[in-house]
């Protein structure tokens, strides 16, 4: 009888690992908290840097799923334990699952922009998040101000909830900079006469093609990049938003009115308390799970039979998540063979 793997979380990491594990001959059960698979990929319109439709990636992940894979949605793990060589898990539905290995692919949460009170998310009418903007693009809706007008000037705010000790997140979320550049271009493509400003501290264009996207934004679309973190935002009575930043490359404070503000929300760790308590897994100061070794066991935990893939161990791109999911599948296969 082939061995069983339990995957927690049916996002990019969980789905990709599931496809590989099935091909290797294992029985896979995926437990998913929400009502559908695909995780946050369901919420994105187009992906950086190639601007491929997110739905295309999701379709690909679904095609790779084995028809015999058991997918349990709308369910939460309430208890989990490693017993000798097996894993026993209970769900909130009363169901019990046992497996020979478990893959934690629970991903990340989006930073709650309300915590940056001074930015006025859900207080000011024309402040939205990058996730809200993706939703607008995905649903094919028109990008308008709260009063239904075409915005003439949009500001995209980098590092919302990242590199910010005040909200408890000192790390870089890695994907926001390039998302901000991608969204700036998308806005210009929708509304060519709209001025777009990106307010950044550092532009972290580290990966392949990212720098190209940045140059495209500047040269082709005349997106303006202003180095300075948003200090405070105020809503004018006409609904426009006044922002205060320092133009740090000029060493001068600056104010400007924007018709729409987009907050690039970072990644925060999911709720790992169950894993910490029952599996004795560690989390770092950033609250993400810590793998057994940063270089050589990046997809293994310190607990026997428990593995990681994706953003549960820190902010990652979708590309990196897929690579990691495949690595985790192989690591699990190696563990189950011995």
């Amino acid at each position: 009888m082939s061995k069983k793997v339990l995957i927690i979380g049916a996002g990019v990491a969980g789905l990709e690992a599931s496809g590989v594990l099935s091909k290797l001959g294992y029985n896979v059960t995926i437990v998913e908290e929400s009502d559908r698979i695909g995780g946050k990929l369901n919420r994105w319109s187009h992906l950086f840097p190639s601007r491929r439709p997110a739905s295309e990636v999701l379709e690909h992940l679904q095609l790779n799923l084995d028809p015999n894979t058991v997918i349990i949605t709308n369910s939460k793990i309430t208890d989990i334990a490693v017993k000798d060589t097996s894993i026993e898990a209970s769900l909130n539905t009363g169901k019990h699952i046992d497996a020979d290995a478990v893959l934690i692919s629970t991903g990340f949460e989006l930073f709650d922009a309300k915590k940056k009170e001074e930015y006025g998310y859900q207080i000011y009418e024309n402040v939205i998040t990058s996730a809200d903007l993706e939703k607008i693009f995905k649903e094919g809706k028109e990008l308008t101000t709260s009063k239904g007008k075409a915005p003439k000037r949009i500001g995209i705010i980098h590092c919302v909830g990242s590199r910010d000790e005040k909200v408890g997140n000192t790390y870089c979320s890695k994907v926001c900079c390039v998302t901000g550049v991608k969204q700036a271009i998308e806005i210009k493509e929708h509304l060519s006469s709209c001025e777009v400003f990106n307010f950044y501290m550092d532009l972290r264009m580290y990966d392949r093609h990212f720098e190209d996207l940045y140059q495209e934004a500047q040269v082709k679309h005349h997106v303006q990049f202003i180095r300075g973190r948003l200090s405070e935002a105020f809503e004018n009575p006409d609904g426009t938003v006044m922002v205060k930043v320092e133009d740090t490359l000029l060493g001068k404070p600056m104010k400007m009115n924007l018709d729409l503000v987009v907050l690039l929300v970072g990644m925060t760790a999911g709720n790992n308390s169950l894993f910490k308590k029952q599996l004795r897994l560690e989390t770092g100061t950033d609250k993400f799970l810590v793998p057994a070794d940063e270089h050589f066991k990046s997809v293994s935990s310190k607990q026997k039979g428990v593995f990681f893939a994706g953003a549960c161990t820190g902010p990652k791109t979708i590309e990196n998540t897929i690579t990691e999911a495949r690595a985790a599948a192989l690591e699990i296969a190696g563990y189950l063979k011995n």
């Binding site: 309300k114 009170e117 006025g120 207080i123 000011y124 009418e125």
Partner: peptide
Amino acid sequence: MLQEGKKALW
């Protein structure tokens, strides 16, 4: 201004 948001914060 979204008053509910402000009230939630208050």
